[in-house]
Design a protein around this nucleic acid. Sequence first.
DNA 1: AAAGATTGATAGCTCAATCTTA
DNA 2: TAAGATTGAGCTATCAATCTTT
Lengths: 159, 159
Amino acid sequence: MTTTRALKNSLIDELPLAHEAWVAVVRAYNLCDAVLSERIEALGLKTAEHEVIVSLLLYPGVTQQQLASHSFTAKSVMSVLVNKLEQGGLIARTVDARDSRAWRLQLTAKGEKLARRALAIQNEVVTAMTADYSAEELATLMRVSKRTCSVLEALREAR
Amino acid sequence: MTTTRALKNSLIDELPLAHEAWVAVVRAYNLCDAVLSERIEALGLKTAEHEVIVSLLLYPGVTQQQLASHSFTAKSVMSVLVNKLEQGGLIARTVDARDSRAWRLQLTAKGEKLARRALAIQNEVVTAMTADYSAEELATLMRVSKRTCSVLEALREAR
DNA sequence: AAAGATTGATAGCTCAATCTTA
DNA sequence: TAAGATTGAGCTATCAATCTTT
């Protein structure tokens, strides 16, 4: 956040050290989302659709709820989204052999082709973002992020 | 993403090294959002409202568009949101002395009280998330995230 | 014109209720 | 009863058009 004048705000001095780091992470996340959205738009995809088909490319056969939970979105959203992608000929649904309540989702040939292009764009952005990382910096980022996930998962359940 | 069976997917092996790190960052971001939402709800706040009043606590006097751009949201959203917070007695708007098109936003006494509690909760979560970081890990995270922001800002403008 | 803010139409998300199968 | 998926109501976000001031 930029202000018109420099502030001597005692609250800012009292913030935990990690505050500044986390603000930067959040900003990076949002900027990455913005850049990816722009580029993915060239394929006629929205980010939600992008996320679904790339997930299916990497992890074929997952259920809608697994996708929803992975994307931190409601299962009703996934229901509508998958319907739309199926009607667009990108996804095929087959009933799970062992549990006929659940759909197993797969990409069609057309869907796989598009998902590969979408993943290539994502890889370009992620590679550009991290181009100047040292090997050690990258390793630290990965290690630290995974530990943070573990802590937050525990915090989420502990209520 | 968890799958029912372990997959030997060549695509996953071909992903850039940074992919795994970035996936973890995105997951941490979403988990943090979920945990914060839960806790902030106790104050009767949604995350969008939380973000606005905490921003005003740290950076009083900013305009609506500055807030919108900081939150990566549309200015129309901020217009509605600020209206609501003003009607709730949390925010006061005064016309900018030098430019009467713009509002200068400030917290009311009631708003400041609430914002301080909201910031305290945010600090708790951020501190918990990073409790097991070494000083060096924290420094690396901050440095790397800020550089990533710079790269992405350049990528966003270059179109 | 250009910029800050607002309004209104459209699209998307959240959440609870419902249906079907396990 | 519980779980996967779907539907519908209500709310929020997005985007373009508009108003006012610079």
